[in-house]
Amino acid sequence: MEAIVEKKYTYRDFESDQEVRWCPGCDDYVILRSMQKALPEMGVKREDVVFISGIGCSSRFPYYMNTYGMHTIHGRAPGIATGVKLANPDLSVWIMTGDGDAMAIGGNHFIHVLRRNIDLNIVLFNNEIYGLTKGQFSPTSLVGQKTKSSPYGNTQPPFSPGELALGANARFFARIGGNVPKDISQILIEAHKFKGTSLIEVLQNCVIFNDGCYSNVTGKDVKEDKQIFLEHGKPMIFGKNRDKGLVLNKLKLEVVTIGENGITEADILVHDAKEKDPTLHQMLVRLKYPLATGIIRSFDDVTFEEREDALTKQVKANSKFTKTNDLFYSGEIYMVK
C-alpha cells in the first residue's frame, strides 16, 4: 500500500520538462492530461510512481511524466514492469502500450501478465494502426482496412483486446473513448485502486493514419446512442433518452426499449463487474451495438505478489537459514587438516 500523501499535488507536479511531441490533435494528449489530473486524486507519492513503456507513439508517454519512468523495447514493458513491481511492491507501476506493442510483438507477455494478476496497471492505446512506423495494419486493424502494408485491404482478422484479455483471465478490464478526459481520469483512478492487473483499453484516434476510426461510436453526437457506459450495480441503460437497455435473450444480449412490449426498467440487466464468472463480461466485450465502455470487469482476486509474499513469509518462518553461511556450512561438509 502506498502511503497517503500529505502534500496535495496538482497536475502540474506530474508534467516533466520535456516537450510533448505527438501530432497535433492526437488523443494521446488527452490521455496524458487525464493521467496527470488523475494522479493527484490517487493519494500516491510522486516518487512511488513508475511509468514503463515499450515502443510506439504511446510509448513516449513516460518521458512526459515527472515520475520515475522507463522507455524500453518493443513489446517487453510487461516483463520489465513485473520486475519493478516484484522488486518493490510499494510502487504504483503503469504500463503504457499500444495495439502493436501489446497485441503483436508483446502478445506473449500481455497474456502472461494478465494471467498472473500482479498489481500493475496497463493502459492500452488502441488506434488500430501502426503510427510510429507510418501506417501499417496492426493486430486490431479491421479486415479490408487499407493501410501502407495492405494497399488492397487487410486480410488478417483482428484481435479484440478485451476478449483476449478475458481469455487470459484478466480480473480488471475497462474500455473508454479517447475523447472523454474526465471518464478516462475516473477509470485510471479505479484501476489504481484495484489490486491486481488492470487493463484499460482506450479507443484512441490516430489523426494521421487512421483518422475517424472510432467516430461512429465515440463522436459527441452519437456516443450516447452507440455506447453503453457500464457502472457496477447500475442497470445497463443507454441512449440519449435513457430508454434503451440490455436484456439476456437465451444466450445473447439483446437491446430493448423501455416502455415497448411491456419492458420496464426492472427487466434490464444490472451490471455486476465484480462477478467471478466472466461469461456475461465476455458477452459485453463482444457487443458491437451498443459498444460497452466503462469498467466491464473488476473481479477481486489474490494477486501474484500476495501469493509470493505469503510463501516467502512461510519459508522464512520455517527455515533455519538466515545468513548464507548457514547454508554454506550445512549438510555434508568435511575438514581437511
Binding site: R76, I80, G83, A87, H109
Partner: peptide
C-alpha cells in the same frame, strides 16, 4: 526473488525492471 518468466525475453526484462528498482 526467483521469477520463472514466460520466455527468455521476459526473464531478462524482469531482471532489468528489478535492477531499475534497486
Amino acid at each position: 526473488k526467483a521469477f520463472q518468466a514466460e520466455d527468455e525475453i521476459a526473464g531478462i526484462a524482469s531482471a532489468i525492471g528489478a535492477s531499475f528498482a534497486g
